[in-house]
Design a protein around this nucleic acid. Sequence first.
DNA 1: TGGCAATACTG
DNA 2: CAGTAT
DNA 3: GCCA
Length: 347
Amino acid sequence: MGTPSDALEVLAENYEFIESIGPCLGFRRAASVLKSLPAPLRNINDIEGLPCLGPETKAVIQDIFECGSSSKVEEVLTDERYRTLKIFTSVFGVGPKTAEKWYRRGLRSLEQIVSDSSIHLNKMQIAGFQYYEDISKPVSKAEAEAVGHIIKEIAGCFSPDVTMTLTGGFRRGKEFGHDVDFLLTVPRPGKEDGLLPAVIDQLRIQGLLLYSDFQESTFDLSRLPNRRFEAMDHFQKCFLIVKLKKEQVVGQQAEQRCGRDWKAVRVDLVAPPAERYAFALLGWSGSTQFERDLRRYSRLERNMLLDNHALFDKTTCFFCNKVIHQRRIPMARCDSTASAMLTANQD
DNA sequence: TGGCAATACTG
DNA sequence: CAGTAT
DNA sequence: GCCA
């Protein structure tokens, strides 16, 4: 669409495709700032005083106000290379490098890719093509909740006191997403270890598991400036594609005769130790741009290192653990607080 | 003019 | 290590 | 591309 932030995102994506990371980030931040505004821009003067909006982004926004579109953006949108890379990178497992490689070989469509026997796809890309129709469609909130019921049911069998939280875009209030993210925790320390393998096994047994990539991620504290805690923390996650039966989705009729009664959905599950829940929640709530800016702010402005597990103070060489005594803060207030200094937590 | 989030897995 | 994922 |  023709909103200024969409236009800036197009330019950001184009710079990503030509592997020009700087301008890409510049346009991404600018787009995020516009989305963080309480009300849409009325005219070009409204950008006065906003961060991350310099001469280049201003010109684009001005063009949109004056002409209804920006010629630079329109040019990108009609560019064959941009259009092709956009299609290629829309496949799960295909990034800018692979897309570029295919483009250079003269390939222009997904049909050409799948029918080219000299192309060797990895496991992720095979799943990406196999379920492309489904997983490239947006996931509705109702679908996300239906997936939630399935996972919660299974996880509850493993451990009745499991808690499950919908994160990602849906936690930020979005009505649609490209995947569904859940955080799972059990109060008993160490008990979370077997959780995801058990969930994955059960999904497989029920015939609902279409793709699974399980990751045992180890958080190595000894790598930090502080070598006093030699502890290793871990933190499991998995990237899945699951079969969601349409009858499980509230307010949706299984359409008979023509076609399947299910849809493939991308699902990410994360199982941190209860003690790490706050950091995991922060890290998995997004948006991508918000997470980047938060980490950059931690490091550059506060001399701290933030990741999905912890916040480390480089000045005192201590981990900041106060925040694990969680307070319930509405997302909206988190966002506005943070976006006062950072760019926004919107997509 | 340098720097742009940070980390884990696959092949 | 390069590439993709989050 | 924007900023420190």
